[in-house]
Design a protein around this nucleic acid. Structure first.
Length: 670
DNA sequence: CAAGGCTTCTC
DNA sequence: AGAAGCCTT
């Protein structure tokens, strides 16, 4: 135990910017004098550094939390860093803290980073404990009857709702915090926006109020009002009937368990009153909470899911690399009113109804056939509630790269969707003033409108509003072709590797990453959209890679591989460390003849992390042992790619990712 | 009321 | 595409 001087316990806040139901904070307060630290190290997130609107939110959220903490008596330290692990260690030393508390995160970078923190500080005699503050259940608590992780949302969520024990009920906020002495640990000023962003950010404040108290208000408002009609209204693009909780939840300003708890109380109440609509609404709303849970679950079990398709054959999908398409989509000039309205709203407000997210992303993947990770990155940069896990799940769902994803070969028509979620065209008219005078009959398909109707509405297609960038029929044909090609390439690759030969696909396709276009700024809207001749269509056979993120994980990978014999858990308490550390906790992945199909219902077999058994013995849930996560276990996701698909040990792909070979060497159980 | 057809939804 | 729910006969 180190210590003496400064303070006893340090709370490391990240995306848990609240006082209420904050287990790390509560534990620290119980342990003694407290300092709270927030480390701003955006570069560490590599490719997925918070975008402008996210940073705006964070700035205000943090400001509110800081003043609340200070009024309770706590010291609040901010640090600007490019390496949060070493900054954290410095703060621990400067404050003399003997205990470190934080709440778990599940994005790949945090998983690796938190693992490092536990190892490093535990080795220095600091007691490190981490808690579940972000989920109803930790990912490793929710498994099927054989102890394996679920591979479809439905099964996952059914289990969550029928767990033998309830999610932890929310804790009250601390009434008073005994501050530690932090005089030897000065704060850095944090900059979350630059001058050029100030103007655009000012608009955000009209619609949004970040911060934990506003999160609580938003929750109360939603439960007291729109929740009842959630089921009825949820598919309307325009109505303000969603919870608007997602950015609050992203930054942990309100505990999801509190949301769950309060919503369940309503559920009971409405059930007693025989209020069917209310019950239905609650179920649907909880399902969207469940999706958020599932996104963390996926990220934990498949830590590469934000950058690689989970179903291996999608690796062979010939994406169309066309920055003109991409730009038209971003600017809302695709010629499909619902898509364009959505993209304009996204740019203007940082917000998009879930339905519209599905429409625009599906259009992106199926009609434009752009690499899904471009779209995901654009969402990341522009969404106020940008959330790596949720967004990855969303895009994988849309791209058909998860077992229960949308069928790859089916294109949703923006026209049909338009009349479903915007039947009167109000949404389109709001965001596309150039179409405002078009009658509802044509509002979602102006290209079909008779000339005199267009004239009367002041619409001149190809001039003040574009023709469809790609006709839906043409898109269908093109998509079928692409899918055929994908399967041929997949089969060829498999055949080649079964023959022990080099993969047919060779290096040219796989090793050349498709870089994300630099110019993602919204430029003038009135620039006409180019129509691309088909001969210029440029296809690529892999999602673009993300160099910074990949390499940052890679670095950890190498460390991990070198010490891969020791897969011991890094427990939260030093005493447990001594007992458990030698217990190999190996992750075994088994491919059980999984053959990916477009509408795969095949059950994926994933052997469980053996640590699940410890967490299911209840009492350990709070601050219990977090099963070790390490990048080599991340090869979890590779089981989707599986040996059947030509991922033999000498495939070029595996050679470039040595850490993936690692798991194959692990002993196979059952 | 059963059978069959039509619509709606699928994370 | 396939299941589930609703309506019709």
């Amino acid at each position: 135990m180190s210590g003496g001087g400064g303070c006893k316990s340090l709370v490391w806040l990240r995306r848990d910017l609240r006082l209420e139901d904050n287990p790390a904070l509560a534990a620290a307060v119980r342990a003694g004098s407290v300092a709270v630290v927030f480390i701003w190290a955006p570069e560490e997130e590599g490719y997925y550094q918070p975008g402008r609107v996210s940073r705006w939110w964070l700035k205000h959220s943090l400001a509110q939390l800081e003043s609340s903490l200070k009024s309770l008596g706590a010291s609040f330290i901010t640090k600007r860093s490019t390496d949060s692990v070493s900054s954290l260690i410095e703060v621990v030393k400067a404050t003399g803290a003997s205990h470190l508390f934080f709440n778990n995160l599940y994005d790949p970078i945090s998983l690796a980073r938190d693992h490092t923190v536990k190892e490093a500080l535990t080795a220095q005699g600091v007691t490190v404990r981490s808690f579940n503050a972000d989920l109803l259940y930790e990912p490793w608590e929710v498994t099927d009857d054989e102890g394996l992780p679920f591979t479809t949302f439905k099964a996952f969520w059914e289990r969550c709702l029928s767990m033998p024990y309830d999610p932890q009920s929310p804790h009250l906020p601390p009434k008073k915090i005994i501050s530690g002495d932090t005089s030897r640990c000065p704060s850095d000023p944090l900059m979350f926006e630059d001058e050029s962003e100030r103007g655009s950010n000012a608009l955000l404040a009209r619609a949004w109020s970040p911060g934990w108290s506003n999160a609580d208000k938003a929750l109360a408002t939603f439960i007291g009002g729109p929740l009842l009609e959630y089921s009825k209204n949820r598919r309307k693009a325009d109505s303000a009937t969603t919870s608007f909780l997602s950015p609050h939840l992203h930054f942990g300003e309100v505990s999801v368990r509190k949301v769950f708890h309060l919503v369940c109380i309503k559920q009971v109440q409405w059930a007693n009153e025989g209020n069917k609509a209310g019950e239905e609404s609650v179920n649907l709303f909880l399902k969207s909470i469940g999706l958020r849970e599932y996104s963390r679950y996926m990220s934990f079990n498949h830590p590469y899911s934000h950058e690689r398709p989970l179903l291996g054959h999608l690796k062979y999908f010939p994406w169309i690399v066309d920055e003109g398409y991409f730009k038209a989509w971003r600017q809302g000039r695709t010629g499909y009113p619902l898509v364009d309205a959505g993209m304009r709203e996204l740019w203007a407000t940082g917000w998009l109804h879930d339905r519209i997210r599905v429409v625009v992303s599906s259009f992106f993947v199926k009609v434009l056939q752009l690499p899904w990770r471009w779209g995901m990155k654009y969402f990341w940069d522009t969404l106020l509630d940008a959330d790596l896990e949720s967004d990855a799940l969303g895009w994988q769902y849309i791209s058909g790269t998860i077992p229960d994803g949308r069928q790859l070969d089916r294109i949703d028509s923006p026209q049909t969707e338009g009349y479903k979620c915007d039947p009167n065209g109000e949404y389109v008219r709001r965001w596309l003033p150039e179409l405002a005078r078009l009658p509802t009959e044509w509002i979602h398909h102006p290209w079909d409108a008779p000339e005199y109707v267009l004239q009367a509405a002041g619409v001149e297609l190809g001039s003040n509003y574009p023709f469809p960038i790609v006709a839906i029929d043409a898109a269908k044909v093109r998509l079928e072709d692409a899918i055929t090609e994908m399967w041929q390439l997949e089969a060829a690759s498999r055949a080649a590797s079964e023959n022990g030969m080099e993969e047919g696909l060779g290096d040219s396709s796989e090793s050349a990453p498709i870089a994300f276009p630099q110019d993602t700024q919204m430029t003038e809207l009135d620039e006409p959209v180019r129509h691309l001749p088909n001969t210029l269509v440029n296809r690529r056979y892999e999602d673009q890679m993300v160099p910074s993120l990949t390499s940052s994980l890679q670095r950890v990978d190498e460390d991990e591989v070198s010490s891969s014999e020791n897969r011991g858990q890094v427990p939260d308490e030093v005493t447990m460390n001594l007992q458990l550390n030698r217990e190999p906790n190996q992750q075994v992945v088994e491919n059980n003849n999984f053959r990916p199909q477009l509408n795969a219902t095949t059950r994926l077999r994933i052997a469980a992390d053996s640590a699940t058994e410890s967490s299911s013995s209840s009492g350990r849930r709070n601050g219990g042992v977090v099963p070790v996560w390490s990048p080599s276990t991340s090869s979890f996701s590779e089981q989707f790619v599986g040996e059947e698909n030509g991922m033999g040990a000498n495939s070029p792909y595996l050679q470039r990712h040595p850490q993936l070979i690692n798991w194959r060497r692990l002993p196979q159980t059952g």
